[in-house]
């Protein structure tokens, strides 16, 4: 059985005399994990700890069953890392830079050269591969960083704010690439971002951090499945009888006053049945918003909560 992608057991990290991560505990089993949180929540610190750059002051962190502190070198053999900040060797040509990094990861020189070219063409920088990396635009540098992270064929791909500084088409292309990489192999993905859409489009499970604590661990696949039919209604009429009738159909209802009702519908109930119940009870539906519970809702909900025992919602 494959070990969980990430296991955290009371992980505490102190840097410069301050506690950055406060006893994180959680198990993330999905192949594509998103790391969300506002600035300063501890996302990059967690990634750096998983890479062995920071030693935990308490607890442990494991990636694919390997302890980040005790088995750091073995773990890093499996990892491809795309850092958030500028990380390149300015005077090297793009393809030489990626080849260099692949060789350090253990690829023989000829294989490293072949993989560097493949990676560069794959990320869409084939035309620019012989130019020095220092002359690349910000978006191109991001793609070069992705190329060096995948050239050696890692089992775990860690992407720290991959779409930073990219224009919308470039961002879309990068997100597509990440999804392709995920689907083309058995690679595990850990993507840190403060952009909810990036995480929503690429990840199956999300770990939300706030002030160095776990605000939420949420399985997006299950959430999407569970909240397929989610209605926000604005009504005029007797709300109580209307919601009682909906509940007999198996719906869950919440009344917020002024005719505002939220309805979670089971798979068996169609929207037309809601209209029929409203007509039967003489309730006017003035506005209907049909949507599923988005990551934004989950994120905002997690940010509003003051504390959750195990962080799972």
């Amino acid at each position: 059985m494959m070990p969980p992608t990430i296991e955290l057991e009371g992980l505490e990290v102190q840097l410069g005399g301050r506690t950055i991560l406060h006893g994180l505990t959680g198990v993330l089993k999905s192949r594509a994990i998103g790391l969300l949180g506002p600035n300063g929540a501890g996302k990059s610190t967690l990634i750096n700890t998983l890479l062995g750059f920071h030693k935990p002051s308490k607890g442990s962190a494991r990636v694919l069953g390997l302890d980040a502190s005790a088995n750091g070198k073995t773990l890093r053999e499996l990892v491809g890392y795309m850092p958030e900040n500028d990380s390149f060797i300015a005077k090297m040509s793009g393809v030489r830079f990626v080849r260099y990094m692949a060789e350090i990861s253990g690829l023989p020189p000829d294989q490293a050269m072949e993989r560097a070219h493949e990676a560069f063409v794959y990320v869409g920088l084939g035309e620019a591969r012989y130019r020095p990396v220092g002359t690349y635009s910000l978006g191109m540098k991001q793609l070069a960083k992705l190329a060096q992270a995948i050239a050696h064929g890692p089992k775990v791909l860690i992407l720290d704010e991959p779409t930073n500084g990219m224009d919308p088409p470039a961002r879309k292309r990068l997100i597509e690439l990440i999804r392709e990489i995920r689907e083309a192999s058995d690679i595990c993905l850990l993507l840190s971002s403060h952009l909810l859409r990036d995480v929503e489009e690429t990840c199956d499970e999300v770990l939300i951090l706030r002030n160095g604590k776990i605000a939420s661990i949420c399985n997006l696949v299950e959430e999407r499945r569970a909240n397929r039919k989610f209605l926000e209604l604005e009504t005029v009429g007797v709300e109580a009888t209307f919601t009682a009738a909906l509940e007999t159909l198996g719906c869950e209802c919440a009344i917020f006053g002024n005719g505002r009702i939220k309805v979670v519908m089971p798979d068996s109930v169609e929207i037309r049945e809601v209209f029929k119940v409203a007509a039967d009870r003489g309730v006017q539906i003035r506005r209907m918003n049909h949507r599923r519970d988005s990551l934004e809702d989950i994120f905002l909900n997690a940010m509003e909560q003051t504390g959750v025992a195990d962080g799972r919602i």
Binding site: F53, V79, Y81, P83, D86, S87
Partner: peptide, 11 residues
Amino acid sequence: NGALPLFLSRP
């Protein structure tokens, strides 16, 4: 250019 994390994130 901050290339050190790239070296040290490898074995």
